[in-house]
Design a protein around this nucleic acid. Structure first.
Lengths: 177, 177
DNA sequence: CGATTCATGTAACGGGTTACATGATTCG
DNA sequence: CGAATCATGTAACCCGTTACATGAATCG
């Protein structure tokens, strides 16, 4: 039924609706196109978020039919929606949410395996990180309407991956005694 | 009812049971003591995980009563539990799980606020990170039975926080034009 | 003509947290 | 004696994903 929709999701949807009115499917496409494959939001969640935002009066909805294509519901931001967006943005930008450490518990038990095996495993992990780093777009070529907008977002990802890599290298070297 | 219990939770519980048999409350205490306040696992989850591991035959259970204190259920690892632990550990150590980026969506919309305000907000975020970093134990004084075991775990946290800080500083400088 | 695309949803499941219930005991 | 501690659990809730359903249109 009526989910709340996390801050992140609301922020994303409101932020995109701020630039232009959109229907759900279109919204999903825009998001997917920027995150190729690994979407941070699934369609079901998007539709739900839109419905919720509409209930709250943060967006208006309007039915639209282009030719014989399926009926679509186009959403647009209301002034309240814009306010809500800015408030969320301010709160979110000014705060640091400690990132959940996943895949970390294993690090507590390095002693349970022979050092040689630990080294092999960590090197394999290192390779995964390096691969993920290579897949990151260096700097988006600028024929994108949101050109610079995503810069900070992706730059953080890259920074994080690089830090992870450096840390792993350090740990590996350390274990090498 | 019967939850699966995430890999992380299972790994943590099995790993701790590997060193000594424990009852749920004690397990929670051990975990809490190392993460002061911000526990990565809640009691309800722990009890549930233990129950599940018992169902699967990875741990044995035994009732114990010390004096008139409440009845406690003490769990101990079985050989299968030990195998399961090692398998989980190998898989987890050798793999990199991309961390969920939370609090990041806001970074996509830096353009929505005047640059001066963005700078103020980012500086406030920077301070949160710096504070979190100060709260991290530099290097655990060694009167801890798990002395070196947690080294890698905490060192990663520190590294991550430092990377976050450096990245924020860079971004702030960049926005300063 | 079968497969994919457009477009929107619903139902069920998964998995963790919150809040609450219980009951004895020890501490201030 | 009231409050906190010991010890274990359950029920409800929150939220997101998976999988499925629908139905027309277009593409190979």
């Amino acid at each position: 039924m009526g989910r709340k929709g996390s801050t992140e999701h609301r922020l994303l949807v409101l932020g995109l609706l701020r630039m232009q009115e959109l229907h759900g499917y279109q919204l999903a496409e825009i998001i997917d196109s920027h995150f190729g494959g690994k979407t941070p939001v699934k369609k079901a969640t998007l539709y739900d978020t839109l419905r919720k935002l509409h209930e709250e009066g943060l967006v208006t909805s309007r039915e639209e039919q282009k030719g014989n294509r399926p009926l679509r519901t186009v959403y647009a931001l209301t002034p309240e929606g814009d306010e809500a967006f800015l408030a969320l943005l301010r709160k979110s930008l000014g705060t640091y949410r400690e990132i959940d450490m996943h895949g970390d518990t294993a690090l507590m038990f390095l002693g349970a395996l022979p050092r040689a095996e630990v080294l092999t495993l960590l090197r394999s992990r290192r390779d995964s990180v390096a691969a993920a780093l290579r897949e990151q777009p260096e700097e988006e070529p600028g024929d994108d309407p949101h050109h610079g907008a995503l810069h900070a977002f992706f730059s953080r990802r890259v920074h994080n991956l690089r830090a992870e890599l450096a840390w792993l290298d350090e740990l590996i070297a350390e274990l090498h005694t």
